[in-house]
Simulated scan of single mutants.
Amino acid sequence: MTMMKTARIHEFGDASVIRHEAVPRPRPAFGEVLVQVAATSFNPTEAALRAGMLQAFLPVVLPYALGWDVAGTVTEIGAGVEEFVVGDRVIGRLDGGGGAAEYVRAPAALLVAAPTSVPLVNAAALPVAGLTAWQAVFEHGKVAAGQRVLVNGAGGGVGGFVTQLAAYAGAEVIATASSRSTEVVLRQGADHVIDYTAGPVGAALDGPVDTLLNLVPLSRPDATALAPVVRPGGRIISIATPIEPSADSGVSAVHMVARNDVAHLAALVELVDAAALTIDISASRPLADLADVHRLGESGRTRGKVVLIP
């Protein structure tokens, strides 16, 4: 029996519950491929899953192998798969986890060809964060040329993609970030950057915005204070704390959860290969450091995306 390394949890708790174990290498079933993992990436939501905070609406069975993002090379093809051949470089979002391993068995229908213009390791940062950004900007936010858009939390992994996609759509992008992220956020297409550590974001704005894209957890008072920055008839999209506008404002509000959509992921890959979208990798770490990366993410001190290499 051929074994492989993987990172799993057997119980919910802090980052110390992450175990690195040897398990049998899987074989692809019908409609699946076996992927040799080049990298996975850290997503803050996985830390919440690890802590048991998502069981109410995203229940998982323990032991659970971490890693929703995957980038790698197809090494074995299951019956019924015609989309890929051995040697293809692929990326995907694995809703059942398992990307934090040397190999992962994945449904072929959830994978797309990896971008050719960036290292395969870096491409692991694209699926979860990129899909969230795409759906926030285009599907829910309906961002278009000429609009003013506020990206609250532009320095994070999702925020970098949101900033770039909103700029790509032709919007005037106002981004909030700390001073350590300002240069990167400007390079990603923000027209203005507000240092959220310097005071209330609303007070720093020069007039209302058409769309607020909120990517960070907020206290209830902070969420309430942010809602009035949107003009009457505008939109609020939040992937974190729900933000409720006043009933008479005419502002629509959506608290969204991104879904897996390979058409959207393929469109993101096209933008990467067209040099219209960059992947901001702040660190590449060995998979053995996964617990430390979880701790760093929970501290709020990460910027961009962190990829983990088996």
Rank of each mutant, 00 (worst) to 15 (best):
K5V: 14
A7N: 03
R8T: 13
I9A: 00
I9G: 00
E11K: 13
R19Q: 14
H20K: 02
P26E: 09
P26F: 10
A29H: 11
F30M: 12
V33T: 07
V33K: 04
L34W: 03
V35R: 02
Q36C: 10
Q36M: 12
A38I: 02
T40I: 11
S41E: 00
T45K: 11
A48N: 13
M53H: 15
M53L: 15
L58R: 14
V61N: 13
V61Y: 14
L62N: 04
A65S: 15
A65N: 10
L66F: 03
V70Q: 02
V70A: 05
V70Y: 03
G72D: 07
T73K: 09
V74F: 07
I77G: 07
I77L: 15
A79L: 14
A79F: 13
E82V: 15
I91H: 01
I91E: 01
L94M: 13
L94S: 06
D95F: 11
D95I: 15
D95L: 14
G97D: 06
A100T: 04
A100R: 01
Y103W: 12
V104S: 01
P107F: 06
P107Y: 11
A114H: 06
A123G: 08
A125C: 12
A133I: 05
W134Q: 05
Q135V: 05
A136K: 02
V137N: 03
A144G: 04
G146R: 00
Q147L: 12
R148N: 12
R148S: 10
V149M: 01
V151D: 00
F161V: 06
L165D: 00
L165I: 08
A166G: 01
A167T: 08
A169W: 03
A169H: 05
A171P: 03
I174F: 08
A177H: 04
S178P: 02
S179N: 09
R180K: 13
E183W: 10
E183V: 12
Q188N: 15
Q188C: 11
D195Y: 10
Y196T: 01
Y196D: 00
T197G: 08
P200D: 12
G202N: 06
A203S: 14
A204I: 07
D206R: 12
T211F: 04
V216E: 03
S219K: 09
D222K: 11
T224K: 14
A227P: 06
V229L: 08
V230H: 01
G233C: 07
R235M: 08
I236L: 06
I237K: 00
I239A: 15
A240Q: 08
T241V: 11
P245Q: 03
A247L: 14
A253T: 04
V254E: 14
V257R: 15
D261P: 09
V262A: 06
H264K: 10
A266P: 03
V269N: 01
A274V: 05
L277V: 09
L287I: 06
V293T: 04
R295V: 14
E298I: 11
G300L: 05
R301G: 11
G304N: 06
V306I: 15
L308H: 07
I309S: 14
P310V: 07
